[in-house]
Simulated assay, not measured.
Amino acid sequence: MAAQEDKAIVRGLRPGHVVLVWLTSGLRQGRAIGWIETALEPLRKTHPYADVHPTGDRIRSATGIESLVWLTDIAGLSRTEAADLMRSTAQALLRATLDPSAASYSTRTSSNRR
């Protein structure tokens, strides 16, 4: 799938919905952070203090296949329960990003990886 098609997938979605797109897409090729960052991009204008890239990393860490596998195989949740939990976690991370008074996360960035 081309990058242009990736953007079409998330165009018009609210940030919390990108989790559903990823979980239902069946495409696990390392594109999730890009999709999440695309969904978060409008925040650069509406919430200039929000750091989109680390937020994308945080949301991806909570919504990736690794989390899904752990929640279903180890924690014993159904796929629906796991998806609900992952969605609520992603939404909590987004809310924390949008609230400038919220306790800050670690300041470690992923600049070393890119």
Results as ranks from 00 to 15, higher is better:
residue 19 V to Y: 04
residue 19 V to F: 02
residue 20 L to K: 11
residue 21 V to C: 02
residue 23 L to K: 10
residue 23 L to M: 11
residue 24 T to H: 05
residue 24 T to F: 08
residue 25 S to D: 04
residue 28 R to C: 09
residue 29 Q to N: 12
residue 30 G to K: 05
residue 31 R to T: 01
residue 32 A to E: 14
residue 32 A to F: 13
residue 33 I to Y: 07
residue 33 I to W: 04
residue 34 G to Y: 06
residue 35 W to N: 00
residue 37 E to L: 04
residue 38 T to N: 09
residue 38 T to C: 03
residue 39 A to D: 05
residue 40 L to T: 00
residue 41 E to P: 04
residue 42 P to N: 00
residue 43 L to N: 01
residue 44 R to H: 08
residue 46 T to N: 08
residue 48 P to W: 09
residue 49 Y to K: 05
residue 50 A to K: 01
residue 51 D to G: 00
residue 53 H to N: 11
residue 53 H to S: 14
residue 54 P to Y: 02
residue 55 T to F: 05
residue 55 T to N: 02
residue 56 G to E: 07
residue 57 D to A: 13
residue 57 D to W: 15
residue 58 R to H: 12
residue 59 I to A: 06
residue 60 R to Y: 14
residue 61 S to F: 11
residue 62 A to N: 15
residue 63 T to D: 06
residue 65 I to P: 11
residue 65 I to Y: 13
residue 65 I to K: 15
residue 65 I to C: 14
residue 65 I to N: 15
residue 66 E to Y: 11
residue 67 S to D: 12
residue 69 V to A: 15
residue 70 W to Q: 10
residue 70 W to D: 06
residue 71 L to R: 09
residue 72 T to H: 00
residue 72 T to I: 04
residue 73 D to K: 08
residue 74 I to R: 08
residue 76 G to F: 02
residue 76 G to E: 05
residue 76 G to C: 07
residue 77 L to R: 11
residue 77 L to H: 13
residue 78 S to M: 02
residue 79 R to C: 03
residue 79 R to W: 09
residue 80 T to I: 11
residue 81 E to P: 02
residue 82 A to S: 13
residue 83 A to G: 12
residue 87 R to N: 11
residue 88 S to H: 11
residue 93 L to K: 07
residue 94 L to P: 05
residue 95 R to F: 08
residue 97 T to M: 13
residue 101 S to R: 15
residue 101 S to Y: 07
